[in-house]
């Protein structure tokens, strides 16, 4: 692998990302002709793995579309026979096994989508009131070793379990930002385990938000990361009718050594990089 032409890798990466210009595409074509084993799809598959790993919401395909796809199959059958045969592949690369494992694990639950369980698209919010998991809050579940869909525990119970079992769990109280009206009466805490890569936030008295106008967003500042790029912990809402709220922490990327959790108010859907102009709460380790 070390003997590979770095330019080839760069061009393959560019192809996977869809950013090759015409000249580069021609250059890649020439290099691929000379590549033993034919085309190398490993970059395309890596990009596909990235796509799936960063999907934040899996929703079932609309029924009418699925029906259309199945129904339109008949006239298509006749045209699928003139495909070139697969070219011999280079030996299986270890990373492909990793990608396959990740993706199979992530999506082993697909068939269950057509079952009776609640679907992600029905989810209204990831927060719960008083720790009670709403019936429609079913997000992409972890792969289960059993064939039945896992029944999630209420968030309060999950939080307690994490506190009891995770060896590295930390619990930090929120501190309201000075002169921040949204957090004037807010209290609560953050529970986090770096080994488990999960945690929960509890809020009491945090001002409700209108999700059409603003959303709360969590940021995790990690010792291993530049402070300019805190980990996005996801957005959440505080419903006007709620009292105590528990919000699961969904870090978009791993936070190995968090040092500070911060809540900001952002536009609906959150932002990629916060302007940090509206910090509401912080919890430092």
């Amino acid at each position: 692998m070390s003997l590979r032409d770095p330019r080839l890798d760069e061009l393959l990466a560019g192809r996977a990302l869809g950013d090759l210009d015409a000249e580069e595409a021609r250059e890649l074509e020439k290099l691929l002709v000379a590549l033993p084993g034919g085309d190398d799809l490993s970059f395309d598959l890596t990009a596909a793995a990235l796509d799936i790993a960063t999907l934040e919401k899996i929703e079932p395909m609309p029924a009418h579309l699925a029906a259309k796809l199945v129904a339109r199959d008949e006239p298509r059958i006749a045209e699928v026979t003139q495909l070139p045969k697969p070219r011999p592949r280079p030996p299986l690369l270890p990373w492909l096994a990793a990608a396959a494992a990740i993706l199979l694990a992530l999506f082993g639950w697909w068939p269950r989508l057509s079952g009776q369980g609640p679907t992600p698209s029905q989810s209204g919010t990831s927060t719960t009131t008083n720790g009670t998991l709403a019936a429609t809050t079913s997000l992409p579940p972890c792969p289960s070793t059993s064939s039945s869909a896992p029944i999630p525990k209420p968030l309060a119970a999950q939080r307690e379990e994490l506190l009891a079992k995770a060896k590295d769990v930390v619990k930090i109280d929120w501190k309201a930002a000075a002169k921040e009206p949204s957090a004037a009466t807010a209290s609560g805490d953050v529970v986090w385990s770096s080994t488990e890569q999960r945690g929960f936030m509890r809020f009491h008295g945090l001002a409700p938000n209108d999700s059409k106008l603003t959303q709360y967003q969590l940021w995790i500042f990690d010792q291993d990361q530049d402070d300019k790029y805190p980990v996005d912990g996801g957005v959440f809402d505080i419903d006007p009718s709620t009292g105590d709220v528990i919000v699961p922490i969904v870090a978009k990327i791993a936070a190995k050594h968090p040092k500070l959790f911060a809540i900001t108010i952002e536009k609906p859907g959150g932002v990629v990089v916060s302007g940090r102009g509206h910090i509401v709460l912080t919890a430092g380790i």
Binding site: K57, P120, S126, P140, Q158, G234, G269
Partner: peptide, 11 residues
């Protein structure tokens, strides 16, 4: 990003 993220079930 959606509020309906992977929730607590981070695999």
């Amino acid at each position: 990003p959606s509020a309906n993220g992977p929730g607590a079930d981070v695999c």
